[in-house]
Design a protein around this nucleic acid. Sequence first.
DNA 1: GGTCTGACCGGCG
DNA 2: ACGCCGGCCAGAC
Length: 115
Amino acid sequence: MAKQPKAKTYSFFDDVYDVVRLIPKGRATSYGAIASYLGTKMSARMVGWAMNAVHSDQSVPAHRVVNRNGLLTGRHHFKTPKTMQRLLEKEGIKVKNDKIVDFKTVFWDPAIELN
DNA sequence: GGTCTGACCGGCG
DNA sequence: ACGCCGGCCAGAC
């Protein structure tokens, strides 16, 4: 489980963190996919918000989470705008213009992979 | 305790 | 094809 700053009620934030941690190396998923897997597909924003709440937590590979276009929308929230891309490329994911190449190939859908 | 905002998504003009 | 708008929910002010 995710370490909760304020030991509060179990929220889907923790579920988000769990799913993100389960993303295999060299793969990436989208906020919407995670939201959908958690049952709140309409609230993909919350997934991004959850990331923002834990972007300082290194245990959560937030760099493997991008938007549905495979665009590294959250790269600016990392220490440096290039951190996200570098991490992805280090895992074998090619990034071009802040966008994942062959995203649908790299795409990892929790609803399917975790089934 | 009401209001604003946010790393999104899907639909419509 | 491109741009705008509404929705969804939790946290910060």
